[in-house]
Design a binder for these strands. Structure first.
Lengths: 131, 131
DNA sequence: CGGCATCCTCGGGGATACTG
DNA sequence: CAGTATCCCCGAGGATGCCG
């Protein structure tokens, strides 16, 4: 290969390799961030999470919790009473995400209004040129 | 409201309000992080981005670039020659994301192997209990 | 209470072809 | 070169119902 040396550029950025994407793959599901947020305060029961997060269904709550558990970010403790009590809490690995998440929130606090301005300006200029 | 004070819990975590989610909504599209990564080195042409990112189609490249532009994170400079030259670069707002992204990468570097271990352990224990 | 099983919809995103 | 325009498919995720 490359018998002719036109200096062909090889891909050097890949979804499965890029560190950015690997973390986002973990925390960017629709409800993941919300659940982590709910768990920040400490140990909390299944039902309580559902009540605190607006609009989440039991299906997605369970599914997202399972994923987080599988990734080792949260712990699931079952008290086998009737009815059962199931409480979730962040694992040490999960807690290591908190500083990261706080900076996400901080960025939003200081920059999100600029994003909204940019969107408004962009949409306006686009609608103008189509008139 | 709350005529009866059973201390009914109100949702206090919302997709549209949570700072975590607002940032993730911006940077968590499939190709967004990769493109930001490609732009970190500085001004770069459309075609070059496509060549550097493995597996991206022209459609998704254009579409993701448009979103980033709309959000004010990147700038698009056109030199109207034939053929045209279009170069993209991070805006100041986009550059403000870089420290955040670096920490995402750093977290992956130090913790991702633990996530993989947790996944393997979880999958193993699940397959065990179904035998 | 804390799930799991189903069904269904909607849109993200891939493949391909055309264009100024 | 730097895009549009179409068609199409698959899977995330919502709604609903049943269960130990």
């Amino acid at each position: 290969m490359s018998a002719h040396s036109k200096k062909s550029i090889q891909p050097d950025i890949s979804l499965t390799v890029c560190g950015y994407s690997k973390v986002l793959e973990i925390i960017s599901n629709k409800w993941t961030a919300l659940i982590i947020y709910a768990l920040e305060d400490g140990r909390i029961r299944y039902g309580e999470i559902g009540k605190r997060i607006e609009g989440i269904s039991k299906k997605m709550l369970t599914q997202t919790l399972r994923q987080l558990e599988r990734d080792g970010l949260i712990r699931r403790d079952v008290t086998p009473s009737i009815p059962p009590i199931v409480a979730y809490s962040l694992s040490p690995l999960g807690e290591s995400l908190i500083p990261l998440m706080l900076e996400l929130k901080q960025w939003a606090k200081t920059h999100y209004s600029l994003v909204e301005q940019a969107r408004a300006a962009y949409d306006h200029s686009v609608s103008q040129e189509h008139s």
